[in-house]
Amino acid sequence: MLMDDGLKAEGFTRLTYELVETDGITRLTVTHDLTGAPNLAVMTSGQADDQPGGGGGGWPWVLSDLKSLLETGTAFSRPS
C-alpha cells in the first residue's frame, strides 16, 4: 500500500492465486500472506473500517467484480 507511509514501510506482501477445476467448475482461492505486515493485516481484515461489513481493504469488491466479469463477460462499472 504505497498510498500510506506506515503501510509502505511494512514492505511487500505475497498474493497466491490457486485455480482448481472439478467437474467443469473452477474454484478460485486467493491467499494474501501478510507476514510482517500487521497494519495491512488489520486494514484488509476490515477491522479498521468505519462501518461493519465495510471494504476490508477492497477484496470483497475486487472478487465480486471478477466473478461478474467471468460470469457475464462484462466488468462491473462504477460511475466516474
Rank of each mutant, 00 (worst) to 15 (best):
M43A: 08
L69G: 11
N39R: 12
T44V: 08
T72R: 08
D49V: 01
I25L: 12
Q51G: 03
S68T: 10
A9I: 02
L19I: 02
D49A: 00
P52W: 04
T29G: 07
Q51F: 09
T74M: 10
D5E: 09
T26E: 11
M1N: 10
L63D: 12
F76K: 15
T74S: 14
P52V: 00
T44C: 03
P38A: 05
T31I: 05
T16Q: 10
T26N: 10
W59S: 01
L7V: 06
G24H: 07
T13Q: 00
T22R: 14
T13K: 02
D4I: 05
T74K: 15
V20E: 13
K8Y: 12
P60D: 11
G24K: 07
S77F: 13
E71A: 14
S80Y: 10
T35G: 07
T74I: 04
W59N: 01
K67T: 13
F12N: 12
L19N: 10
Q51N: 11
A75K: 15
H32D: 15
S64D: 14
I25V: 11
P38L: 04
E10I: 00
G57W: 00
A75F: 13
L2K: 09
K8I: 00
V62E: 14
F12W: 09
P60F: 04
L63C: 14
I25G: 13
E71F: 05
G11R: 04
G46Y: 02
G11W: 02
M43R: 02
V42R: 13
G6I: 03
L63R: 11
E71P: 01
G53Y: 12
P79R: 10
T35S: 11
T16F: 01
G54N: 07
Q47G: 08
E18T: 07
S77H: 15
K8N: 11
W59Y: 13
K67L: 12
G73N: 12
L40T: 06
D23H: 06
L7A: 08
K8L: 08
V42L: 10
D5H: 11
A48I: 00
Q47E: 15
D65F: 08
A37W: 04
T29L: 12
V20H: 10
P38S: 04
N39I: 03
G57Q: 05
V42G: 00
T22G: 05
L66T: 03
P79N: 09
F76H: 15
D49N: 08
P38R: 06
E10S: 02
V20D: 12
V30N: 06
L69Y: 15
L70A: 14
T16K: 06
P60T: 00
M43P: 00
E21S: 07
Q47A: 10
